[in-house]
């Protein structure tokens, strides 16, 4: 912020010196030591971007909570069709859970490697992350396919509508996350660890970890409680 005054620079000068300009600076060092607090000036872009993305993720989680609420209300409305206990295969869910957890971990390792500017290590961990994500999505598609083959598609009962909406929405997020992951790998490879790329990588990491948090709620409420009920 040394070249040109941004609106927040102007605002900070206004707040420190009042509306009539100079002359009210008892300590004599202006805002040169601004450290990102209030009138001191804007926080660094990395913090602003990360915070903004964090707020987006929380809103995404709020959207998921609506799907969870719908599922919780409709879980027993099977309309004479199959119940969760008959449909869910907990072994497959355990493998899916392991895939997503490992990919969340390797995603973190990739980020640590990126902060240390290690190209090959970053690419390796991100590739592992993507492969585990792919296995996860594959298993989920297989599950959906088998259920629809058995006549337990989303149109069968309110329970299954809510199930496909909730689990499918999460699977869609993982798929989009996988595409984003591939894009990030290419950008890191061709453009290097520039600050904008690192900010995107930070956001991607937050996204991927948040998906795992949602999966924790999902496998507990939908699969484990559903199979036990």
């Amino acid at each position: 912020m040394s070249q040109a005054a941004t609106p927040s620079d102007v605002a900070s000068v206004y707040l420190q010196h009042g509306p009539y300009g100079q002359g009210h600076d008892p300590h004599g060092h202006g805002h040169a030591d601004a450290r990102g607090h209030g009138a001191g000036g804007p926080a660094p872009k990395r913090v602003i971007v990360g915070y903004g993305f964090w707020v987006f993720l929380l809103s995404d989680i709020v959207m998921f909570s609506a799907f969870f609420a719908a599922y919780a209300v409709l879980a027993h409305a099977t309309a004479g069709g199959p119940t969760g206990k008959q449909l869910f295969d907990l072994n497959r869910v355990a493998i899916e859970t392991a895939c997503l957890l490992v990919s969340s971990f390797t995603c973190g390792l990739g980020y640590v490697a990126a902060t240390r500017r290690r190209q090959l290590e970053t690419q390796f961990w991100m590739l592992v992350t993507g492969l585990f994500g792919l296995v996860f999505v594959g298993l989920e598609v297989l599950e959906f396919y088998e259920m629809i083959q058995q006549g337990a598609g989303p149109g069968r009962s309110a329970f299954l509508s809510a199930f496909f909406a909730l689990v499918g929405c999460h699977g869609l997020h993982v798929t989009v996350g996988g595409l984003w992951l591939g894009t990030m790998m290419a950008q890191i490879w061709f453009k290097g660890f520039k600050p904008p790329i690192m900010r995107r990588l930070l956001c991607f990491n937050l996204f991927w970890h948040a998906l795992d948090i949602i999966w924790v709620a999902l496998f507990t409420i939908v699969y484990l409680l559903g199979a036990g009920a």
């Binding site: 450290r35 990102g36 607090h37 926080a43 660094p44 990395r46 913090v47 971007v49 990360g50 915070y51 993305f53 964090w54 980020y111 640590v112 500017r117 660890f193 520039k194 600050p195 930070l202 990491n205 937050l206 970890h209």
Partner: peptide
């Protein structure tokens, strides 16, 4: 812009930053 670790001296942390 120095490029790396430009803001570690600032007080706020982005979510996901290791401390």
């Amino acid at each position: 812009m120095s490029g790396h670790d430009e803001d570690w001296e600032y007080d706020d942390a982005a979510p996901g930053d290791e401390h």
